[in-house]
Design a protein around this nucleic acid. Structure first.
Length: 413
DNA sequence: TCTGGGGTCCTAGGACCC
DNA sequence: TCTGGGGTCCTAGGACCC
């Protein structure tokens, strides 16, 4: 049976949500009407644009560029810091409203979701009418606008919501692909990023239509499985379903740019310990253990290296992870090139339910796990900073690292 | 004066086993 | 003793999403 799928996308998400909040403060200003961006802190060396207003976009300011470069384009640019707590809160409200129009809603990122509208027509009218009701409800209750794309699968709905913005509803049914999607530049297709775009342009494919109509075997040879995928997408083919099930994590990681470039190993390890605390507490909260530990280092010159280590057992205590991290840092880094950023990742995750007994093979691990358990409980009750390792007391970086969890974004449907 | 952060998937090469 | 082929696991790096 044919389905009706909506993709709903909050317009300039972070910026709108910060704007809505600032409207209630004095002096009232609507960030959306002036050149403005949400940007990271330049002081802690994270000065990039996270989101921009439409007037800022018109001046050529793009997500991901440095604030320095953005200011060159617009000296009067207003920069506000991100407020991830606010964004998570708005995201939840946004989801709740959409959920009142269909039980089948899938969160795709902090500001995007898919809604399966199939069978909802008796309640809210034909798709366009239903979409309009959703859009109006969000505007009146939450104060920001959305784009809604309507089609028969997720890929086409997502492509449709990306058409003209803001506050618009678009359809992209299969019989409209040729007219509405094929003329678009190749880079507009979902899953065609910078590198793939370049490769496609090299062989003369500059529109989605040209990709759709080229021989799929050529694409398979040229770009392997990714070539096959985007060829399907260019033809509007996507069989994935809207699902409400939360998929278990396959990996959990945390990283950070450091307050300055680090040349001292002891100091780097202190930052690494902070990140171990964070990533391990998330691991335990998920009720899983990991057997692979990863360390990635970005150097001063922005080059990047990573090493991983497969362990013989599954671990979840901060100390066990930290001990593997220390080995990996020593492998990766001789101390010559200053380090700009470090990331710690855990993968090959298994649920603790299935193998809890295999852990207690040595008393030291057992002790650590007990301590971590108590620390986690205290933190759950009294906040993250109620208890801190002696070596990290008064550490500003440590306090910031643990402050909040940055949202993540999926790259597959 | 440089370019954040979190997550998934793919690929190529090498090791190792039979 | 001049040496195949398949399977699996591990690792590093790179692609993508916003």
């Amino acid at each position: 049976m044919e389905r009706t799928i909506f993709h709903i996308d909050a317009n300039s998400e972070f910026l709108s949500w910060s704007a809505v909040k600032l409207l209630n403060e004095w002096p009232p200003i609507d960030l959306r009407s002036v050149p403005s961006v949400v940007g990271g802190s330049e002081q802690s060396r994270k000065g990039i644009v996270l989101a921009s207003s439409i007037p800022a976009k018109q001046l050529g300011i793009k997500t991901g560029e440095t604030l320095y470069s953005a200011r060159l384009k617009c000296p009067e640019l207003i920069v506000v810091p991100p407020d991830f707590e606010l964004y998570e809160d708005m995201s939840a409200k946004f989801f709740k409203i959409c959920n009142s129009f269909s039980p089948l809603v899938q969160k795709f990122s902090i500001d995007e979701l898919f809604l399966d509208y199939t069978n909802m027509e008796p309640h809210f009218g034909p798709p366009l009418e239903g979409a309009k009701k959703i859009s109006e409800k969000i505007k009146s209750e939450l104060g920001f606008t959305v784009n809604i794309g309507i089609s028969t699968n997720k890929l086409l709905a997502k492509m449709a919501s990306d058409f003209e913005k803001p506050d618009k509803i678009h359809t992209l049914y299969p019989d409209e692909i040729k007219e509405k999607m094929w003329p678009l530049p190749i880079g507009n297709l979902f899953m065609v990023g910078r590198q793939t775009k370049k490769k496609l342009l090299d062989i003369g494919i500059d529109t989605i239509g040209k990709l759709a109509n080229c021989d799929i075997e050529i694409m398979k040879k040229y770009l392997k499985s990714h070539g096959e995928l985007i060829h399907k997408y260019a033809n509007g083919i996507d069989a994935s379903l809207v699902t409400t099930e939360k998929e278990p994590y396959k990996s959990i990681s945390n990283g950070s740019t450091l307050p300055r470039d680090i040349s001292d190993k002891g100091e780097l390890l202190k930052y690494a310990l902070s990140l171990c605390e964070k990533v391990c507490s998330r691991l335990r909260k998920e009720g899983v253990s990991a057997s692979v530990v990863d360390v990635g280092i970005r150097f001063k010159d922005l080059s990047y290296c990573s090493h991983q280590k497969k362990l013989l057992k599954y671990i979840y205590s901060t100390n066990d992870v930290y001990s593997a991290v220390k080995d990996l840092v020593n492998e990766l880094w001789s101390g010559e090139t200053p380090v700009r950023a470090i990331t710690i990742g855990l993968s090959d995750l298994v649920s603790n339910e299935y193998q809890q007994y295999s852990f207690f093979d040595d008393d030291k691990s057992k002790k650590y796990e007990k301590i971590d358990g108590v620390v986690d409980e205290l933190r759950e009750k009294y906040g993250f900073h109620c208890i801190t390792r002696a070596s990290l007391v008064d550490d500003k970086f440590h306090k910031n690292v643990l402050k909040y969890q940055n949202p993540s974004m999926k790259s597959y449907l």
